[in-house]
Simulated scan of single mutants.
Amino acid sequence: MATQPAITLAQYQKHFLTEESCFDYLYKTKWPEGYRCSRCQHDDCYTLKTRNHPFYECKNCGNQTSLTVGTIFEKTRTDITVWFAAIYIVGQDNDVTTAAIANELEINYETAWTMVRKIRKALASPECIANAPAL
């Protein structure tokens, strides 16, 4: 299995400090060739701005989706920037404790535990690293 090169803290901060930059990365990960409807494969959509995060509606069939559907972020109420920070921390030190992440990110232990469990499961999947776009 090929591994993604580790990024430095400076690289992380350059690319993932805002919600917009995190969602841009998710967009490139989900649709590397541009938007593609999961139902009809049409390549054009409306971007709905009425939500807290981008929401997409296919111009052909009306199918609606978001960038988080089918990911570890689906149905989360935690900010995407906090998720990306947790991913960075776990990626740097797989032995980091859930309590340390909760303290570092100023979130409750139960939220940190759920996040760490999902992150470690995703990182154990070979597709996770293979499908990640370069920074």
Rank of each mutant, 00 (worst) to 15 (best):
N60H: 08
F23K: 02
I72Q: 07
Q41D: 11
C45G: 00
S38E: 11
A85V: 03
P54W: 04
H53E: 06
G62L: 09
T18W: 13
K49C: 11
F84T: 00
S21A: 11
Q41L: 12
F55Q: 02
W31Y: 14
G91L: 09
Q13N: 05
L48R: 09
Q64D: 01
C40Y: 10
C22Y: 13
R51H: 15
G91S: 14
T78H: 04
R36T: 01
E19W: 00
E74A: 15
T47L: 12
K30F: 04
P32M: 08
K59E: 12
F73H: 04
T68H: 08
F16R: 02
K59C: 13
K28R: 15
A85S: 14
Q41R: 11
N63Q: 13
D79K: 15
C61P: 02
C61V: 01
F23I: 03
C45P: 00
L26M: 10
K30V: 06
R77Q: 09
C61F: 02
Y35N: 00
G70Y: 11
G91R: 13
F55H: 00
T50H: 03
P32K: 08
T47H: 07
Y25M: 04
Y25K: 02
R51T: 15
D44Q: 11
L48D: 08
W31E: 13
C40H: 11
V69Q: 13
I87P: 05
D24K: 05
A86D: 00
A86K: 02
S66K: 11
E33M: 06
H15K: 06
E33W: 03
Y46L: 13
D44S: 13
T65Y: 06
T47C: 10
V69G: 04
G70N: 12
C45L: 01
E20A: 08
C58P: 03
Q13I: 03
L67S: 05
P32D: 06
Q13T: 03
C61W: 03
F16C: 00
C37V: 05
W83G: 00
G62C: 09
I89V: 14
L67Q: 07
C40W: 10
R77H: 14
Y25A: 05
